[in-house]
């Protein structure tokens, strides 16, 4: 018992450094997902048929394949074949980001489709171009209503970032595993890792919940 506590105490700074890597991977992935997922959602709702089909196939592909397989496919396969020398951390963020595009586009699409009809019409009637209407009228509303979905997405990406262990990215789980295989304190150390992940999940979801409250508009249900 005492030995376990000592091992945890000694390893904690090293493992906690890994949480910076984890947070970096998650933030990178979330931002890629946001930057590409938003236009993809707009394309899925308002786009021409080829755009809609392309988007649908993209979503089907990335939602249907396990993260682990995607990691292997991109890290050892495609990136190698393309002579891209990306680090494990960058690969993890990129792959989780590309998959996040699929997930986040679904969140935003749902948000757009849930808007009351006539928002676009009203904007056009005021003389806005369609692009202007989407950027100034549709998206500000959708981003607000998408926060709960985004919180969910954060918690999924955070937990999936642990799979970057197989790439050797020095994040929380890799570091924990490294220490555990030397000290043989697996139980206590994985428990510690679990607690760190739990705190990160809770903190992120709590933060987004506060953001949601801050952006709350009376009578506007999400």
């Amino acid at each position: 018992m005492l030995e376990s506590l000592l091992a945890v105490k000694n390893a904690l700074p090293y493992i906690l450094q890994g949480s910076l890597v984890t947070v970096g991977i998650v933030l990178g992935a979330m931002l890629i997902g946001l930057a590409l997922g938003l236009p993809m959602a707009v394309g899925q709702v308002y786009g021409t048929r080829p755009i809609r089909y392309t988007a649908a196939i993209y979503v089907w592909f990335f939602r249907g394949i396990p993260v682990l397989v995607l990691f292997f496919l991109f890290y050892f396969g495609l990136f190698n074949a393309l002579n891209l020398n990306l680090s494990a951390i960058v690969t993890a963020a990129l792959v989780l980001g590309l998959r996040g595009v699929a997930y986040q586009s679904q969140i935003f699409r749902g948000g757009i489709e849930a808007l009351p009809h006539g928002q676009l019409k009203a904007a056009r009637a005021l003389g806005m171009s369609d692009t202007r209407a989407v950027v100034s009228i549709i998206l500000p509303q959708v981003l607000r209503t998408s926060i709960p979905g985004w919180a969910n997405e954060y918690s999924i990406v955070l937990k999936d970032s642990a799979i970057a262990f197989v790439l050797g990215a020095p994040e929380i789980l890799s570091r924990t595993h490294f220490v555990a295989s030397r000290t043989y304190e697996h139980f206590a150390l994985y428990l510690t890792a679990g607690v760190i992940y739990f705190c990160l999940t809770w903190a992120g979801v709590h933060l987004l919940h506060r953001l949601e409250k801050k952006l709350y508009i009376p009578g506007y249900s999400s």
Partner: peptide
């Protein structure tokens, strides 16, 4: 609130402890 992979490690590597 915790990654499935951590749960699996706990069950496979942790429980023998």
């Amino acid at each position: 609130g915790t990654p499935l992979l951590v749960q699996l490690f706990m069950l496979y590597f942790g429980l023998p402890g």
